[in-house]
Design a protein around this nucleic acid. Structure first.
Length: 243
DNA sequence: CGTTTTTGACCGGCGC
DNA sequence: GCGCCGGTCAAAAACG
């Protein structure tokens, strides 16, 4: 991952919006200066609706963190991305973040619209290889009875990678694996090992192209990644910028 | 021996 | 209401 030179990152937004984002998300959001607006990518995969990023190779931790931060921010502040149908950024180093794109509405970010997506998906019928991201808001329903459902913001991105689990700087514990219909590859479920951190992520391979990995994050970390990087100090300035 | 993975059971939502 | 399906639990196994 050595030197992911994300120098020159300047915000696409004005300072006021930057500040607002920072207030909302608690994150500083650096935007690469070479971001462009590619044509709108069409993803037929329902699970990719919402926000997704396409990467040609495995993500460097920095790039993955950037993707998380940026996308989480987009989930939080969908309106600010309204003008930007897509975002494209590229990284040097280990991984390249080709494009970040979102479909209108941030469908997967907000629970109200999830059902709509499900219905439209179901109605499409046929041999669509799409598979939805299930409604998982009923966490611990039995234990906490009268607790209201809370929809955590989530986002996903697609990566060309040989390894399933991308190193994003966080520690994850696998808690489940499931074979989803019409796919030959199982879907894995991970939870952040940090105490009191309920962030989950799921990893699966794209049925159409097994070389592609779809990583879906749900929730946002309320802590820094617990990396055991030896030279974390040298990268700390970069890391701190992200987190 | 503490932590993580594996894996079938279980649960709730949804369509029929 | 029933069955399918995806998500989670949890006990046992595997790991280091």
């Amino acid at each position: 991952m050595s030197t992911t030179n994300i120098v020159n990152h300047h915000s696409l937004f004005d300072q006021e919006q930057d500040h607002e984002i920072h207030m909302q998300t608690g994150f500083n959001i650096p935007f690469p200066s070479n971001m462009t607006l590619p044509p709108l990518g069409n993803c037929h995969d329902q699970s990719l609706k919402g926000i997704s990023a396409i990467t040609p190779s495995s993500l460097s931790p920095e790039a993955a963190n950037f993707a998380q931060t940026l996308l989480a921010s987009a989930v939080q502040k969908p309106r600010q991305f309204e003008d930007l149908n897509d975002l494209t950024s590229s990284f040097g180093g280990a991984g390249q973040l080709l494009s970040l794109n979102r479909s209108r509405g941030n469908s997967w970010a907000w629970g109200d619209q999830v059902s709509d997506c499900l219905m439209s998906k179901r109605s499409s019928g046929g041999d669509d290889h799409s598979h939805h991201i299930g409604v998982s808001s009923t966490i611990k329903m039995k234990k906490m009875k009268g607790r209201r459902k809370v929809r955590e913001p989530r986002f996903c991105f697609k990566t060309m990678s040989e390894v399933d689990v991308l190193d994003d700087g966080y520690k994850w514990r696998k808690y489940g694996q499931k074979v989803v219909k019409n796919t030959q590859h199982p879907r894995s479920y991970y939870r952040c090992t940090q105490d009191n951190c309920r962030v989950k992520k799921r990893v699966e391979r794209l049925a159409e192209d097994p070389r592609m990995v779809i990583t879906t994050y749900e929730g946002r970390h309320a802590h820094s990644p617990s990396n055991e990087l030896e030279d974390s100090q040298t990268h700390s300035e970069l890391t701190n910028f992200f987190w």
